[in-house]
Design a protein around this nucleic acid. Structure first.
Lengths: 250, 250
DNA sequence: TTTAAAATTCTCATATAATGATAAAATTAG
DNA sequence: CTAATTTTATCATTATATGAGAATTTTAAA
């Protein structure tokens, strides 16, 4: 294995269940010599990727907090879509979600809650299931043919389970229908009894970059209501994509 | 130079001014061979520290967003102090700030604004000046003697400019006074016309871990008012530190 | 969908830096 | 201030990183 990978592998240890690691524990888990391990930990600590206090082991460093801030303030998606999403969520007493595609992931990057009926667990930084839910599927629907092929082959079962089709042809067709509609709604794919209504967001070059969505209790809305909201979400998302084209950064 | 450092050096390129780098630009800035550079970028991208989209160069990856979330949800300081700070800021129509020490840095990790008179620029992830302002100085005041020595020698001028004393003895004395008072207030050290009132937060082992502070327009408060608020802030911070002792994680 | 162009990864011989045992130094805690 | 502990430095050996070019993958255009 590459040395660099062994260095970065250390970061993989840190999780919600175990955010703090003693030197000895890392040693036991990864088995480097003490010299090497100290060298690795110093490199990561100097880079701000880890932090340590005497007698308290290692935990994730300030760089993650600082770079998240940097990403947040330089993200035109948040700047442009955030306020509009907040407004729309308030107007419809629901939860608004802004997601971004990161190659093979869909992450929530902004959220606004305007209801107490559902408590969304999708804060900024929380990953979404890639195949399930409107906010993700609307992104899948706009991948290039090549990218979709690549993703489909090792994940055929996930596509089927998410109701997108039993073979690639069927998946292409259902994703094509989502593209044609301009918006997409799912019910209970992520949380039982909860409806998601999403539309795609495109970057300044016209490529899929994320999704704009509302989340609300299934009982609160009729099929017609969903349709009306879908059109609104689609129109709003289209406006945002248009603004992104005029905005310098991506 | 160590190879690992050259790898991580790539991350240093990314800034608020230039959050996006083309391969050719990185090549020009750091001068590795194409093979090596591609190898480095792939390692960082696979680790989620960078992200890339065709024709759009590289930018910071999803790991920073995800790990900031992880840090946020596992941070007992935010869980315990956040709600109390919000309440206190609302009650006094000011800005509440929660800062954390990261070895040589002081970072804002939580903020609540309950006034329109000042607009705090200290969102989560924004670094604070280490020597200036109540929120930082109250942390300095509780460093160990050894740590203070280490920090003082190369920063004597900064200590003087921040009004903490002209030599180490004087600095020790003024920091001792801050410790004795239990809270500390400064005016205009960070933003002109703005008063900061801060108290220290200690972790479960009794070591300084951050600060709890309120920020308000100087015109809105008398010397007595500051004193009253200072006592409140100190008492509240003390309660939080006490709770941290009972809390498992740090 | 097919094809051409561009971007990225792979291969391999050589040079260079990583490794680990131990010694030295720095830091903590009493 | 001193003893105990943690962290860093030293150095010979070994293993891996490097870079040029070839092969492949991926993109974009027809």
């Amino acid at each position: 294995m590459q040395r660099h990978e062994r260095l970065i592998q250390i970061l993989d240890l840190f999780s919600q269940e175990k955010p703090n690691w003693e030197l000895e524990e890392i040693h036991a888990a990864l088995g480097h010599s003490k010299s090497t391990l100290y060298r690795y930990l110093k490199t990561l600590t100097d880079a701000g990727l880890l932090t340590t206090f005497p007698g308290r082991g290692y935990s994730l460093g300030s760089r993650f907090v600082e770079f998240d801030y940097l990403i947040r303030v330089t993200d035109p998606l948040i700047r442009l879509a955030g306020p509009v999403l907040t407004e729309l969520a308030e107007a419809n007493a629901c939860v608004g979600l802004l997601c971004r595609r990161y190659s093979d992931k869909v992450l929530c990057v902004f959220q606004h809650t305007a209801t107490t009926e559902i408590h969304s667990s999708y804060e900024r930084g929380k990953a979404r299931p890639i195949f399930r839910g409107a906010a993700s599927q609307v992104i899948l629907a706009h991948l290039s043919a090549y990218q979709l092929n690549r993703l489909y082959t090792p994940n055929a079962a996930s596509f089927r389970d998410a109701g997108l089709g039993d073979d690639l042809a069927a998946v292409r067709q259902s994703l094509g229908a989502i593209r044609a509609a301009g918006w997409h709604a799912t019910e209970g794919q992520v949380t039982p009894g909860v409806v998601g209504i999403a539309a795609p967001l495109f970057d300044e070059r016209g490529d899929i970059t994320g999704s704009f969505s509302l989340t609300l209790p299934a009982g609160n809305v009729t099929a017609e209501g969903i349709h009306t909201l879908g059109e609104t979400v689609a129109d709003t998302a289209q406006d945002i994509s248009q603004s992104l084209r005029k905005d310098p950064a991506s």
